[in-house]
């Protein structure tokens, strides 16, 4: 065969096409705002988780009547609240708790949503119809009301139980997104080819179709992370999140409901508010860069 020589003439020294990760990395490096955001995020996360290992949560939340509402000083870097509790310590542990919840909820909703959407979209037809009606049912439930009822019922309330209740009402968006994409993917020739090669439906779904949705999943989950951090803070602010014994960014912000604190003790709530703002903004910046990286037409790098 004459053409065999042409094919074999190609060498392995030619430039490898970049992998998904290197494309994403290049896009983030090119976008300075996203790079700074990423450094800030990694730094904050590392700092918060690292320091909180040496801090005792019970010690920090112990009421100290001799140090109520103190302004920032040598002893209390960010002052104290109305119970004499150190704000800086609360901020560290609170950020850790808020981040943990955000990450847990994002991962759990991600896993449930991806699997659910993939199965629904891949099989299509009646299976899809039934599964999507279940999603519709979850969507019309009054989320806020059920969370409030839950808070009233459950006596002891941890990061895990809070994450689970949030997950139960937040997995539908990603499920619908993945389902619509899976509906398209299953019609493509490569999925059909896998079928003719004797691959089981289950394997096609998770080893053939899923990798083709990876960029969509990465982007959606990053943007969801920002939303979930915000949501936790919002609920805690309204008083339906954690009790004061488990500090989070939301509980710190919640002190600002007291007009006295709002007006005269700014050190209680301003750091938490700024941190929530910065965290959400940073996650979002990184997410936007990821989103551009997955679309060749929008790439800057």
């Amino acid at each position: 065969m004459a053409n065999a020589h042409v094919d074999t003439a190609q060498t392995d020294t030619e430039v490898k096409t970049p992998s998904t990760w290197s494309i994403i990395w290049r896009e983030i490096v090119r976008d300075k705002v996203a790079l700074i955001s990423l450094i800030f995020l990694v730094g904050t996360t590392g700092f918060v988780y690292g320091i909180s290992m040496f801090l005792e949560q019970s010690e920090i939340v112990t009421v100290d009547l001799f140090a109520i509402n103190e302004a920032p000083s040598e002893q209390f870097w960010l002052g104290t609240d109305y119970g004499g509790r150190d704000i800086f310590g609360q901020l560290i542990i609170g950020t850790r708790n808020s981040l943990s919840i955000g990450i847990l909820v994002t991962l759990m909703t991600g896993v449930i949503g991806v699997v659910y959407g993939l199965v629904s979209g891949y099989y299509g037809g009646t299976v899809d119809n039934i599964m999507m009606r279940i999603v519709d049912f979850f969507l019309i439930l009054p989320f806020l009301m059920i969370v409030i009822v839950f808070v009233a019922i459950v006596p002891k309330y941890s990061i895990w139980s809070f994450s689970l209740i949030m997950t139960a009402f937040l997995w539908m968006g990603i499920a619908r997104l993945i389902r619509s994409k899976a509906l398209q993917e299953r019609e493509l020739d490569y999925a059909q080819a896998s079928k003719t090669l004797g691959t089981s439906n289950f394997k096609i779904m998770f080893t053939q179709v899923l990798p083709n949705l990876s960029s969509l999943i990465i982007v959606t989950m990053t943007l969801n992370l920002a939303a979930n951090i915000g949501l936790e803070s919002g609920l805690s602010f309204l008083g339906f999140g954690f009790p004061e014994t488990t500090p989070s960014l939301g509980t710190l912000l919640g002190y600002a409901r007291n007009p006295q604190t709002l007006e005269f003790h700014w050190w209680v709530w301003v750091p938490a508010a700024v941190l929530i703002f910065l965290l959400m903004l940073a996650v979002r910046n990184v997410g936007e860069a990821l989103k551009r990286a997955t679309d060749a037409r929008q790439r800057r790098g």
Partner: peptide, 18 residues
Amino acid sequence: RKDIQMIFQDPYSSLNAK
């Protein structure tokens, strides 16, 4: 079914890009 195989029309979409 092992004894029956198929060659697809479109060589671009019939191979999984990932």
